[in-house]
């Protein structure tokens, strides 16, 4: 097994060990922290597909995270209030079923990514960044100005949504669900990286003109990557809203987009387990230093600076050595 494989296995084992350790140490709050880290990692895996494989520096990924969150919030709030989501031309009821909510979150955020991609991929570089940021801000202010779903105050859900055969109110079972989804998405990412699509996307990032010469459209490749990326981040948003039983415009803010990007950069851009390492590190730092100072992000900024300057492969790169793309 390669060094990176060992690092990945160690990260996976650490996540598997969390519930056992939490029970042994009588620290149930650890499970909530780990769930938060796993959901952040899921969102960051989504961004890593666009950023690491496609070279798309998106500062608007919170749009997809927020859409996933609102998909959960809207469906669940209608279900808990026994009011239909819409009555004409046909009635659609709300739902408290996680699989249905996930499906809606994935489809809605994937569709949003498709629309944003169709417009933003006409540009590149700083213009692409600005357009994704602009979409993010548009959605943020739209959510604030939408009183039907809480406006600036957000939307609370009384009881966590359900999953067949599981008690999602049990933190360990909910953690297991989130962890299972993260593993599934990591497998998908690994397969994508080795697939002809992933290779062509990687090539399009390097030399778009050469990719065209072999009959591939770099913009279409990037669009597909952005849709997959947005859908995964949307799924993470639905889980995050379920974890907190609350969704607010904060999930759509540009700070959220920045945080998702920080997870990827700290962990290692284009590294399979980079987002897992980055999100885990972020949540750990927030937990350990958050109690010491409310300005704990100063230390995060310092660390980010060190990673960008001296460890291009992020935490995984430091532990496993440089990869060919670093």
């Amino acid at each position: 097994m390669s060094r990176e494989g060992l690092v990945n296995a160690a990260l996976l084992l650490a996540l598997v060990a969390v519930p056992g350790w939490a029970l042994w140490a009588d620290a149930p709050f650890t499970i909530t922290l780990a769930t938060r880290a796993v959901i952040f990692a899921l969102a960051a895996v989504g961004l890593n597909i666009a950023l690491g494989m496609g070279g798309l520096v998106s500062l608007g990924h919170a749009v997809f995270f927020g859409i996933g969150g609102y998909a959960m919030g809207i469906l669940a709030s209608h279900a808990q209030n026994y009011t239909p989501l819409m009555e004409w031309p046909f009635e659609i009821a709300g739902t408290k079923s996680m699989p249905v909510i996930w499906l809606v979150a994935v489809l809605a955020s994937g569709l949003a990514a498709l629309l944003i991609g169709l417009l933003s991929l006409r540009t590149s570089g700083v213009y692409f960044i600005m357009i994704t940021l602009a979409f993010g801000q548009m959605m943020y202010f739209f959510a604030i100005s939408w009183p039907a779903y809480g406006g600036e105050d957000g939307l609370s859900i009384y009881v966590r949504n359900g999953f067949p055969g599981l008690n999602t109110l049990d933190p360990i079972q909910f953690y297991g669900l989130c962890f299972g989804l993260l593993c599934l998405v990591l497998v998908l990412h690994a397969r994508l990286m080795r697939s002809p699509f992933g290779l062509a996307l990687n090539a399009a990032r390097q030399v778009p003109e050469r990719v065209r010469a072999v009959g591939l459209d770099p913009v279409r490749l990037q669009l597909v990557a952005l849709v997959i990326s947005g859908a995964i981040t949307g799924l993470a948003g639905a889980l995050f809203a379920d974890l907190n039983r609350f969704v607010s415009p904060t999930m759509l803010s540009w700070q959220m987009s920045g945080e998702i990007m920080v997870f990827v950069i700290i962990g290692g851009v284009a590294r399979l387990f980079g987002p897992v390492a980055g999100a885990g590190f972020y949540v750990l730092l927030e937990h350990l230093l958050g109690g010491v100072s409310e300005y704990w992000q100063i230390f995060l900024g310092l660390f980010l600076l060190l990673v960008v300057l001296f460890g291009k492969g992020g935490l995984v790169g430091v532990l496993a050595g440089r990869a060919r793309h670093d």
């Binding site: 003109e209 990719v211 065209r212 010469a213 072999v214 009959g215 591939l216 459209d217």
Partner: peptide
Amino acid sequence: LPSHRAAR
């Protein structure tokens, strides 16, 4: 045709 279509 764009270049990728010509290649195809």
